[in-house]
Computed example of a mutant assay.
Amino acid sequence: MSAMYATITSKGQITLPVAARRALGLHEGQKLGIRIEGTTLVIDAPPDIESLRQRARAEAEAHGTWGTVPTANEGWVAHVDERYDERGRAKP
């Protein structure tokens, strides 16, 4: 894609050229990612929610936690069992 240009308004706004919007599949009201790399401003379309869900599921499956629902109590019970004996005294 060839170079494209936009003008910054007095309010700091720019209009993205139609070719850029089409190339990234952008639509009105969509949020964009903006970052600075050296002296370059990079604008990109963030991943859609479905791809984020798929990534989260893949990561959970890799860790063996997909389908489990942890509760706050489980962590507390493990902590207490590890540090205290059956009478509630701290383990040495």
Rank of each mutant, 00 (worst) to 15 (best):
V77W: 09
A45I: 00
A60C: 02
R21Q: 15
A62M: 09
V18Q: 15
D81M: 13
S2G: 15
S51D: 06
D48A: 09
H79E: 07
W66T: 05
E50W: 04
R22K: 14
I43L: 02
P47H: 04
W66A: 14
I14C: 01
A3D: 15
I49D: 04
G88K: 09
R87Q: 13
H63F: 03
I34N: 02
L26D: 03
V42C: 00
R83I: 10
G33E: 10
H27V: 11
A3T: 11
T65L: 08
G12C: 11
R53C: 01
E59P: 03
A60V: 01
G75A: 11
V42R: 05
V42M: 02
M1T: 15
D44P: 00
K11H: 10
P17E: 03
A23N: 12
E82S: 07
I8K: 06
A56G: 03
L52P: 01
A58M: 04
I8M: 14
Q30P: 04
R57L: 05
S10Y: 03
R35C: 03
R53M: 05
I43C: 00
G38S: 10
G25V: 05
P92R: 14
V42Y: 01
A60R: 10
V18M: 12
G67H: 07
G38V: 05
A6G: 10
L52H: 02
G29I: 05
L32A: 01
L52G: 00
P92N: 13
S2N: 15
A60Q: 05
I14R: 00
R22T: 12
T65N: 05
K91E: 08
A23K: 10
K31P: 05
H79W: 14
Q13T: 09
D48F: 08
P17R: 09
S2E: 15
T9Y: 07
L32C: 06
I36W: 00
E50M: 01
I43T: 00
K31Y: 09
P92Q: 12
W76K: 11
T71E: 07
D48S: 06
I36H: 01
